[in-house]
Structures are given as C-alpha cells and as structure tokens.
Nucleic acid binder design. Structure first.
Lengths: 220, 220
DNA sequence: CAGCCCCCTACCCTTTCGTACAGGATCGCA
DNA sequence: TGCGATCCTGTACGAAAGGGTAGGGGGCTG
C-alpha cells in the first residue's frame, strides 16, 4: 500500500471460515466494490475481500491466501485482458476468475470466456441477478449473458511486441507517422511497418480503427 | 431492497413526504443505481426514485413531479452533455442536476460544472463521501473533485450540425472519406469539408483525433 | 428583401498514409 | 551452427487525407 491513499483492502465478513466461500473483489469504483461486497457478504454468506486495483489484488492474494473466486473489473488500473487474468490465476490457480465490466464491448466478454474466465458480469445487471451469477460460479459453473457469447468475430489479438505497443500509443494520441518516428528515434518507414503489422494483429482496417480498438480493449 | 424487480422506475422510500428531499437517480448500471438508492434512502432519509436511461428519467420527472436533485450517469443510453442535462432542467427547472461517471475524462466534469451542474461525482468515490456530496448539493451547494475543476482546456465544442454528426459517426467507424460519401450519398469533397470543420469544432488535429474525442465525450 | 447558416460541389495543391519488395543487424534458442 | 523472431532501413508508387479558394442553392429570420 502506497502512503497517502486510503487502504481499500479489507475483509468484510467471516461467519464460518471453514465453509464460507472466499471471494476477492477488485474494482476501482468504490461504489460498485462496496455494493458487491455488501451483497455477497450479507445475502450470500460469503467472506469478501476488496482491492482497488490489479496490483493490490495480487498483493492481497499473496497475503490472504487463495480465494474461491476473484472478481476483476475490466476497466481498472493495471488491468488487461490476457495478462491481468493470467497473473491472477498464477497466484490463485485453484480459484475461479470472473470479469466485471460496465462499458466493455461484447467481444471483450467473449474473449474473456475463451481465456478461461468463469464468468462475465455486466454492471447493468440487477444486483440479485448478479448474486445468482456469483453463486453459480462458486458452484463450479459459469455465467455470461447470451449476447456476450454470440458476439462478433472479435480481433484475434496476437501478442504485440513492445515496439508495436509504443507505436500504438502514438496512434491513440493521434500522432502522425513522422511524429511517432521522431519520438521513438526511428525512420518514418519503420513506423509505417509497425502500423501495418499492428493493424493486421488487431484486425484494424487503418490507423484510426487500430486506435479505436486499442481504446476499447484498453491495450494502452 | 425490493426483490425481483423488472421495471427500474420505482420510489424507494418515503418517510415524510413534506420534508424528505426527492432525488432521482438515472443510471443504466443496475448495481450502481441500486446501491446509491439504498444509501441515500437508508442513511440519508431521502425519497429516491430510479430510472435506467435518460428517456425514462424524463418520463419519471413528468410523472412523479419535480425532484430536488437529479443524478445523471454520463455513460448512459440517450445521455449527452449539453443536451441531456438541458432537457432534464427544462422539465425540472427548480431542482439541481449532478452527473455521475465512472470513466469520463476530467474535461467532461469541468464542462458539466460550466454547464450549470451542481456536482460531478466519480464512481471511484467511497459511498460515504458520495453521500456527503449529495447532502452538500441538496443543501444548495456544489461538489466536484479539485482535479475536475482544474482540468485542461478541453474542447470548446461548438454545436455540431446534423450532417457533421453523421460524418463523425463515419469517422468513429474508421471509414474512409470515400465510404462515408457513398453512405451519405454525397461527394467525397463534401465529406472532406465536414471533416475539416468538425475537427476545428472539436479541437482535433486530424480524423483519428476527432474520432477519439467523440468517443471520450460520447458524442456518438 | 438582405443576411445568415447549412449543405453541397468544384479545381487546385501538398502532405500523409498504405502497401509492396528487398534487404541488414541483433539476439535467443534448438 | 542454422533458424526464427524482432527491429530497423531503403526505394518506390498509388491512394487517401488535408488544406485552400470559390461558388451555387435552399431555408430561416430580422
């Protein structure tokens, strides 16, 4: 925990340590986090722990032992789709992982499921439905809205190289190839090359599309 | 909290109709909406009504009379910054209006305040702080995080003409000028003109930047 | 009516982007 | 040691974007 910030990690409820499922909620939205925690704790008899970001969640996992379920907000400091979830699973291999999101496009939810998530929970869900979904997941099942699973093709998303990622940041800042080249201290043609391979990997038709996709998928 | 509700519009609590402040919460995130409603109702003694979108909120205002405060989610079906807030104020002239947002950039909050909002509440706030902010607003004051008020210049945002808006949608879909021209059944040069004026109004340096700004400000 | 705004079009030009083909340098790894 | 991946560079050309100037037509309003 960095000094000067309110500690968000705290255990909510613990009626029966031997039976109560342990759930970790990681979300930077205090409102959502507190609500979910209260619901799961009061109505679900679940031992809930909270975290305000991905790094904090990882630290909590290392400290408070394994969790039966880790709920990760998709739009959260440090979060990214394949990597963030994998890091959580690496520290918490026996527990389930599910994503929460308010504004993520359907493709994100589908990929999350393909990446092994046990569920994808839109924040537009009613609290009770959400509670039921969590129970389903804790029981070993999965939950995701039908619209999510039948989402469009969505970009294949080959891993981006570090250089490509830097160029992508330039695209998202709407900089020209020449500007990006100057910033990265390379030739303009090189930037063009990266933009091209980048667009192919993301399934983008041009630089603008690549920037939009990167924004939607929080790749930056 | 009521179990199993399908309609989102419902009055939460009404201990003393003559004294309890009336607040309307409009948010498509069931989780956030229910939480806020519960907090304001239980801990604040406020008569809370809910709506799941802007149109629904307007309907509720017309039906359940004037509200002391209307809380509008910025990322919500039908919502837009100058227009959505104005429409609410037109139907509810004597009440305050405040915005809630999870991911909006700081500039949005600042413009909201400049447009006459009584507050701007990030969803990252702790529930208790949020409750205090609502109380402050109900008391006739305003609330906004300092970072919001001191945000960067932000685009001037002259009103866009309908045609410009259509072209902007094309930009956000990463379509080329030629494609946009075909879709709108005009010449390509015309599209170029709109893109130029559009970029000037939004303060964008090129089409990509314009698309990013439009996305951030939910102008589409 | 004149003035203004919006919409559309045209011709011109420069810059940028997108794509292609053809390499070279470095590094890790089988 | 060769292989592959990554990163960088070069030349070249067509397509697209960006910018300017000029003008016509419709609609609304003082």
């Amino acid at each position: 925990m960095e000094p000067g910030q309110v500690p968000t990690a705290q255990t909510q409820h613990d009626p029966d340590p031997t039976e109560a499922p342990k759930v970790l909620i990681a979300d930077d939205h205090g409102l959502v986090r507190e609500t979910l925690a209260a619901y799961l704790s009061d109505a679900g008899g679940i031992a809930v722990t909270q975290a305000g970001g991905l790094e904090e969640a990882l630290a909590v996992i290392g400290q408070d032992g394994p969790f039966d379920l880790v709920l990760l907000d998709f739009t959260m400091p440090g979060m990214s789709l394949p990597d963030g979830m994998d890091r959580v699973r690496a520290l918490n291999p026996d527990g389930a992982v599910a994503l929460i999101s308010g504004t993520a496009p359907d493709g994100v939810g589908r990929r999350a499921m393909e990446c092994g998530a046990a569920g994808f929970l839109p924040k537009t869900m009613a609290p009770m439905a959400l509670l039921a979904a969590v129970a389903e997941i804790l029981g070993g099942g999965t939950y995701a809205p039908a619209a999510i699973l039948h989402a469009d093709p969505l970009p294949p998303h080959d891993r981006l190289t570090p250089r490509e990622r830097e160029v992508l940041e330039g695209l998202c800042a709407a900089r020209s190839n020449k500007e990006i080249a100057r910033d990265l201290d390379v030739q303009e043609v090189t930037v063009k090359l990266h933009v091209k391979t980048l667009s192919r990997k993301l399934g983008a038709r041009n630089r603008t599309h690549a920037a939009m996709i990167a924004r939607d998928l929080w790749l930056v």
